[in-house]
């Protein structure tokens, strides 16, 4: 059974159609990579799935765990297990990381009817996850992403993912702006979380990340829809030939 089913999804942003009939099925335990050139609509897909306002779904549907995902508020999606690692994590001065994450985790648990964690239980869990990602505990006393370097922000996203333990994790260009060490740390964090009950949607522009997070499926997205699907090897072919190669093959096939 599919965890996530996206069927013929059309989305407009500021009056312009960005997704033009996107179809995708994801099952628990799978890692799907979404690749594609700039402007293909990859980030739009991530935002629509997480529930950002300002995206108008004109056609199609998204079913997640037998529920209409598009009907849910962002916090309801989070409680249902959807997580989006932002391409540009937001700096929130004045809001302490510990305070924010405890509020987030406990709000999710409450919405699911699970008992909330007390300060000690929460701290224990934080320490566990920080050590997996080799991140300093000092990070928890700082304001959310405030003054973090690009790499620290991305690692903080993965840390939050590890802490919140989502069922469906969407990584939106988490590799952009990372040096090779940070990239490896991010990949290790993701690989440590691979699980038969969990699925990943890894949105990326480059094949590099997929050397570390080996996907089960690679989808190529061009102009708002998926034009090609293959295994991990497709990422390497793309790297060798460029996105134009896919577009040309599609045109040839259509003719």
């Amino acid at each position: 059974m599919n965890m996530l089913t996206i069927d013929n999804l059309h989305v407009r942003v500021a009056g312009k159609e960005i997704l033009k009939g996107l179809t995708l099925a994801v099952r628990a335990g799978e890692v799907h990579a979404i690749m594609g050139p700039n402007g293909a609509g990859k980030s739009t897909l991530g935002h629509v799935l997480a529930g950002r306002e300002g995206y108008e779904v004109t056609q199609g549907r998204v079913v997640y765990d037998d529920r209409d995902l598009l009907e849910l508020a962002p916090e309801q999606r989070a409680a249902a297990g959807v997580f989006l690692a932002f391409q540009y994590p937001v700096e929130i001065p004045g809001v302490n990381n510990t305070y924010f994450l405890k509020a987030a985790l406990n709000a999710q648990r409450k919405a699911r009817g699970e008992p909330e964690l007390d300060a000690m239980q929460f701290l224990k869990r934080v320490r566990e996850k920080l050590s997996v990602l080799h991140m300093p505990e000092e990070l928890m006393n700082r304001a959310v992403n405030a003054g973090f370097s690009g790499g620290e922000k991305k690692r903080n996203e993965i840390f939050q993912m590890a802490l919140l333990e989502p069922k469906l994790a969407i990584l939106d260009e988490t590799d952009s702006g990372l040096d090779i060490d940070a990239l490896r740390m991010v990949a290790d964090g993701v690989n440590a979380m691979r699980d038969p009950q969990r699925a990943f949607l890894v949105i990326t522009h480059y094949q590099r990340l997929l050397d570390y997070i080996v996907p089960d499926f690679v989808h190529v997205m061009v102009d708002g829809r998926i034009v090609e699907t293959g295994g991990a090897e497709l990422a390497h072919q793309l790297e060798a030939h460029g996105y134009a190669w896919v577009a040309e093959r599609k045109l040839a096939g259509a003719a």
């Binding site: 997480a50 529930g51 306002e53 962002p74 916090e75 989070a78 997580f83 929130i92 987030a104 709000a107």
Partner: peptide, 11 residues
């Protein structure tokens, strides 16, 4: 920022 917090589960 509001969306960021909500996407992590904060109502």
């Amino acid at each position: 920022a509001l969306f960021y917090l909500r996407s992590r589960g904060v109502p």
